[in-house]
C-alpha cells in the first residue's frame, strides 16, 4: 500500500482544520472503503485524518421527534439501536442486509454514505473509467456490465451505488449536517448524491474538506409498515442485484402514504416518486403494486448484460410493497 501521513483529531474543528481544503487529504472512519481502494491504487491520499475520536458516536432523539445519528456510529450499533428498531425498522433491515458482521462493526454511518461503486473497472486502476479518471472512457459500457445500473445512467458512466443503508435513508428522508473550512451547512439526503451525467467523478455535493457530522432522519410516517428486500447472487455477504425499500401506511384498505427507494439498479440511492404517485390513494392490492413497479422502471436503460435487472427490480418492488402492507396491517391490529 502506498504511504501517507496520518493525523488524529479530537474534535470537529481540529479535524476540519487539519484536513483543510486539500483534495489529497482524506478523512478515515471505518476504513473499509478507503483502505480497500488505497490498496488498489484507486484512491491516492497523501494524508489521512482519523475521525474516530470525534464526539460523533451518539444516536439521539431530538425534541421535534427526528433521530440524529452521529457520523461515526457504526452500522452494527445503528442497526441494533432500540430507537432505530422501533421507529425506523426499514433502516435496521437494510443495514443488516449489507456486508458482513465484521464490516458492519467497522463501517460508519457517514462512511457508508460515502462508499464508492463496486464497478470492477473503477476498481482496476489499469482500466478506462471516467469516474476514476475523467475523460478516460468507460470500459463497462461495452464490457461486463451485468452488475451495472439501469436507472440514472449517462453515456459517461453506468455504475451502481452499492449501499443498502442509503436505500432506507432515501425512503425515510434525512438531512446531512456538514462542517468544512467555510463553516456549517445542511443538505437534504436525496440531494447529496449526484447522477453521473457528464461528470461522473463528481459523486456527491461535499465541498473540499467538508466533514459529515450528523445524519438526521425525518420523523417516521405514522402507522407505516416497512420492508427491505435485497436480491443477490448469494444469500448473504453480497451486493444487491436489485433491492427495494418500502414504507406504506394504509387507511381502510387504501394507501395513504407510500415511499419507495431502489438499490442495485441505479447510479445513486434511488427514490421513485413515479412509483409513489402510482400508489397514492389506490387500493393496497397486487395490481396497484404492479402498476407502481411499472412506473418505477419505465425510464430504465439496459446494457448488454443487465437487462434482466428490469423485471427483477419490478418483482422486488411488488414483493417489498406487499410485505410492507402486511406489516402495516399487523401494526394497526389492536394488540
Amino acid at each position: 500500500m502506498r504511504t501517507f501521513a496520518y493525523r488524529t483529531a479530537d474534535d470537529v474543528t481540529q479535524a476540519v482544520t487539519t484536513h483543510g481544503a486539500d483534495d489529497q487529504v482524506a478523512y478515515v472512519a471505518g476504513g473499509t472503503t478507503l483502505l480497500d481502494l488505497v490498496k488498489l491504487d484507486v484512491m491516492r491520499p497523501t494524508q489521512l485524518v482519523d475521525i474516530n475520536r470525534l464526539p460523533l458516536g451518539e444516536v439521539e432523539t431530538l425534541d421535534d421527534g427526528r433521530l440524529r445519528i452521529g457520523a461515526t456510529v457504526t452500522n452494527t450499533e445503528l442497526a441494533h439501536h432500540p430507537e432505530v428498531k422501533a421507529r425506523y425498522p426499514l433502516l435496521s433491515q437494510a443495514l443488516l442486509a449489507g456486508a458482513s458482521t465484521q464490516l458492519r462493526n467497522m463501517a460508519t454511518t457517514a462512511g457508508n454514505i460515502m462508499q464508492r461503486t463496486r464497478c470492477p473497472y473503477y476498481r482496476d486502476a489499469s482500466a478506462a473509467c471516467n469516474r476514476r479518471e475523467p475523460g478516460s472512457g468507460c470500459d463497462a459500457m461495452h464490457g461486463i456490465n451485468r452488475m451495472h445500473a439501469v436507472l440514472g445512467v449517462s453515456d459517461q458512466c453506468i455504475a451502481t451505488h452499492p449501499s443498502d443503508m442509503c436505500i432506507a435513508m432515501a425512503a425515510i428522508g434525512a438531512t446531512l449536517t456538514l462542517e468544512g473550512p467555510d463553516g456549517k451547512r445542511e443538505i437534504a439526503f436525496n440531494d447529496f448524491h449526484r447522477l453521473p451525467g457528464d461528470q461522473p467523478e463528481k459523486e456527491h455535493e461535499l465541498r473540499p474538506g467538508e466533514l459529515i457530522t450528523y445524519i438526521t432522519l425525518d420523523t417516521p410516517i405514522e402507522g407505516a409498515g416497512a420492508y427491505y428486500l435485497k436480491l443477490r447472487d448469494r444469500a448473504s455477504y453480497e451486493f444487491a442485484l436489485a433491492s427495494a425499500g418500502a414504507l406504506v401506511s394504509i387507511q381502510d384498505g387504501v394507501i395513504h402514504e407510500a415511499r419507495l427507494a431502489l438499490g442495485g439498479v441505479a447510479t445513486k440511492p434511488w427514490r421513485s416518486h413515479e412509483a409513489e404517485q402510482a400508489l397514492h390513494n389506490q387500493p393496497a392490492a397486487v395490481s396497484t403494486f404492479e402498476m407502481a413497479a411499472e412506473a418505477a422502471m419505465q425510464d430504465a436503460v439496459p446494457h448488454e448484460h443487465n437487462a434482466f435487472k428490469i423485471p427483477l427490480a419490478r418483482q422486488a418492488i411488488v414483493r417489498a410493497l406487499r410485505e410492507a402492507c402486511k406489516d402495516a396491517e399487523n401494526a394497526n391490529e389492536p394488540r
Binding site: G31, D50, Q102, M106
Partner: peptide
C-alpha cells in the same frame, strides 16, 4: 473486525 482493513496506528 477484518484486520486487513484497519491501520495499526488507528
Amino acid at each position: 473486525i477484518n484486520s486487513c482493513l484497519r491501520l495499526a496506528v488507528m
